[in-house]
């Protein structure tokens, strides 16, 4: 039936659409077990929670990115949006704005920028790559109009959130940011699988032409996903501000690529129409666990993270290619 000989048993037991997610899950477990065997004090629940804590912002950004990629688009502006969110928060807090007003404003700005990009992409029929590239420069540039220096955050609410730990019993604890990230994932998954918007996202990515001829609101859907992505990157920026307690124009450089990598490693097709948020979560966890392992190793430079991510990306893109080639051959 196909040319893939490596996973015949797996393919028979579970539907093919879950295979990429399962592969990522297996990889994660394997890494965790390997780490546990190699290092003392590695195989604990807190290690996984720490991955969530350290990557909460990336997870939130990747959720938005998943929406966009599922429609077959791409959003390159998210990293700059994160930086812009930290800068706006830091500077307004320094001016004495109340913390919750700042948060609300930042989220509105993020969503508005996403909405604008989505509208341009749809109504002017420009490739998302170009539009969000422009958005990326715009947001990054705006950071420097606020300040070229790093601005520390001393607001009480922010520092309280940054230092708070929620005890889960045992020796386990998480930060509020990680909880927020998980809530975002749950809401995202719910929207994708149980709402008309979610259906339209998959349908648009599966075949935009078909979706149009089925009378689905393709325009609204495309604009909605970029708005969601803008909102998520602003929220990710807030979490990043909690994490770093400062605003800096050079922060989160290249985070858009980390987010894309997480989504792809999570098994979502770059061409759209197929993928799951749980895959994205696993993708972020894999990326985070690589960093953890490298820090445990101690002797390796942190650039090895990038090397591993690169290798993984190649592996997953090849995997997707093999699967899509296999499914194209099989109907005959």
């Amino acid at each position: 039936m196909t040319s893939i000989s490596g996973l015949p048993g797996l393919r028979r037991v579970v539907p093919q659409k879950y295979v990429p997610v399962l592969v990522t899950a297996c990889l994660f477990v394997a890494m965790f077990v390997a780490g546990g065997i190699r290092y003392e004090n590695f195989a604990t629940g807190q290690i996984i929670l720490n991955v969530f804590i350290d990557n909460a912002f990336l997870l939130v950004v990747a959720v938005g990115m998943t929406f966009v990629i599922l429609t077959g688009g791409i959003d390159l502006s998210v990293g700059s949006m994160v930086a812009l969110a930290t800068m706006i928060s830091a500077s307004l807090l320094k001016d004495g704005w109340p913390a919750y007003a700042v948060m609300a404003l930042v989220l509105v700005i993020g969503a508005a920028l996403g909405l604008g990009m989505g509208a341009i992409i749809h109504y002017f029929e420009i490739q998302p790559f170009i539009v969000t590239l422009a958005g990326m420069f715009l947001a990054r540039g705006l950071c420097y109009t606020i300040s070229t220096e790093s601005i520390p955050i001393e607001n009480e609410t922010f520092t309280a959130i940054a230092q708070a730990r929620i005890n889960l019993g045992g020796d386990l604890s998480v930060s509020p940011s990680a909880v927020i990230a998980i809530v975002v994932v749950l809401i995202g998954a719910y929207v994708l699988h149980y709402t008309r918007l979610g259906r339209n996202v998959y349908a648009t990515g599966g075949s935009e032409q078909s979706a149009l001829l089925m009378g689905l609101p393709v325009a609204r859907t495309k604009i909605a996903v970029y708005t969601i992505s803008g909102f998520c990157s602003a929220l990710g920026g807030l979490l990043f501000a909690f994490y770093s307690l400062s605003g800096y124009g050079l922060s989160a450089v290249g985070m858009e690529l980390d987010a894309i990598a997480a989504v792809v490693i999570g098994g979502t097709l770059l061409t759209g129409g197929s993928g799951y948020l749980i895959g994205t979560v696993l993708g972020v966890l894999v990326l985070g666990l690589i960093q953890t392992i490298i820090s445990f190793e101690g002797t390796l430079s942190s650039w090895w993270t990038k090397i591993f991510i690169g290798v993984l990306l190649f592996a997953f893109i090849l995997l997707q290619r093999l699967f899509s080639a296999g499914s194209r051959r099989s109907p005959q």
Binding site: K17, N200, Y202, A203, S207, S210, A211, L213, M214, G273
Partner: peptide, 18 residues
């Protein structure tokens, strides 16, 4: 133009009448 080939039967059937 008629189907989302990578999705399942039930979602293709329901797509125009969500």
């Amino acid at each position: 133009y008629g189907l989302n080939l990578i999705d399942d039967i039930k979602r293709n059937i329901s797509a125009a009448h969500l």
